[in-house]
Design a binder for these strands. Structure first.
Lengths: 243, 243
DNA sequence: TAGTGGTCTAGACCACACT
DNA sequence: GTGTGGTCTAGACCACTAT
């Protein structure tokens, strides 16, 4: 029995020890770490507890375990970067808020609507709203989604919720995937006027397509962002999870 | 004892069952799922095995467990988006390759070098390289990192490795964090010429700063991307991990 | 054949949350 | 107190990998 005073689980200490050995370079990419039996013996703990520690390391992608062979230190990766689109992506400070400009019904005759792959003649809702930070407009959002009878869009939802939430509230099926493309474009004169910029000045464009479990598109969003007032911040860590 | 024929672990089946109940709406945000004891009894398995299934659901952020209370269905989130900067971020098709343009030594008198927070007078390496896809230049990269004696930069590393790897090979300490800012700018005439664009046309700018465990900046990279030949693709899933 | 990780059990004690 | 999840044990059998 271990001492329970220190509140920190033994499997966590084991994982942290190995993590430090990897960070310091004692264990290098490709090295095999001691077997579960050896670790259990040297720490004086049972194999199940050892496995729990190794599971933490595997979750953080610091090791890989191979059945019949052993556990091996993986190559360190820093290339997967996480952006939280919900977390204030603009300059820090004042809170964000939305203002709904227009709600229109469209047929499937325009390009965004066609991407929704609806039956011919099906109706599409087209939303246009502005994203404010303080008194400044920092982005223009255009959204298209299939019109479902009996699933009204409440204005409160439209004003405040972010894109995946708007779609979720309006659909029967649960949205499970969000494909995002980040690119650059020049502003149309209408967009430039809204954003207080010169026409043809550059802007960040974020396109989102939300899919159901059956891979059916449930909504499309184009977000045109003011180049100075909207930056995407992201970061990646060598290890993630509970370590 | 369970039947081992079906190769699919019981804890996984349990997790998948609950996942389906969440997806279908039978279990909603905030609902408590059955206790570990109840699940163990209804599946005829031990509590440890139940816990393993619930760990999968927790890892996928589908449930949250609270000590002394129970496990609850979380709110569905689609706002965290993952970009793999290593995974071909340009138009699909031909492979990417790097070409080193210049390697210079700089003092800490320019802005990027100052961001590295070195001692006064310390030397900085400045790399400039081009990212090709096929015959097209799709991005211009500028990198700054502290100059370390006895840690030479091999050309092969400079030609092929991506930014975190270049930094990792040149440093004593292991890089553990990569902060990224994605924004928009207009091309200088020199940049425009390299990219085959008009001066002042828009471009995507990706700035990366890599930090050590001690939060010391180990390298800075500015990447200016051709607006039509380089798009950032990303996606997010409602649940991640092994489910 | 021996060694490895993968799955699972049937208990135990603990800390925490309710009432 | 009762019920919950959190930790941990000392075994067991299996499947895979090496030799």
């Amino acid at each position: 029995m271990r001492d329970m005073k220190d509140m920190i689980p033994i499997y966590y200490r084991l994982a942290d020890d190995i993590k430090c050995q990897i960070e310091s370079g004692q264990l290098k990419h490709g090295d095999m770490i001691p077997t579960e039996g050896q670790l259990g013996e040297s720490y004086g703990i049972s194999r199940m507890t050892v496995r729990r520690g190794l599971a933490l390391l595997a979750e953080a992608k610091l090791i890989e375990t191979v059945k019949g062979k052993g556990s091996f230190v993986t190559r360190l990766k820093l290339s997967r970067v996480v952006i939280d689109l919900q977390d204030n992506p603009a300059g820090s400070g004042e809170a964000l808020r939305y203002r709904l400009l227009t709600v229109k019904f469209a047929r499937d005759n325009n390009v965004p609507a066609q991407e929704l792959k609806l039956e011919v003649g099906a109706k599409v809702i087209h939303l246009k709203r502005l994203l404010y930070q303080g008194e400044h407009i920092i982005a223009i959002e255009n959204k298209w989604m299939p019109y479902l009878k009996g699933k009204p869009l409440l204005e409160t939802q439209l004003e405040y919720a972010n894109f995946p939430e708007v779609v979720a509230k309006h659909q029967d099926s649960v949205p499970v995937r969000n494909d995002v493309v980040i690119s650059v474009n020049t502003l149309s004169s209408e967009q430039a006027e809204l954003l207080g910029e010169e026409p043809c000045s550059p802007a960040l464009v974020i396109k989102q397509v939300i899919y159901s479990k059956e891979d059916k598109p449930l909504g499309i969003s184009y977000m045109v962002c003011h180049k100075d007032r909207f930056q995407l911040r992201a970061n990646s860590y060598l290890y993630s999870g509970k370590l």
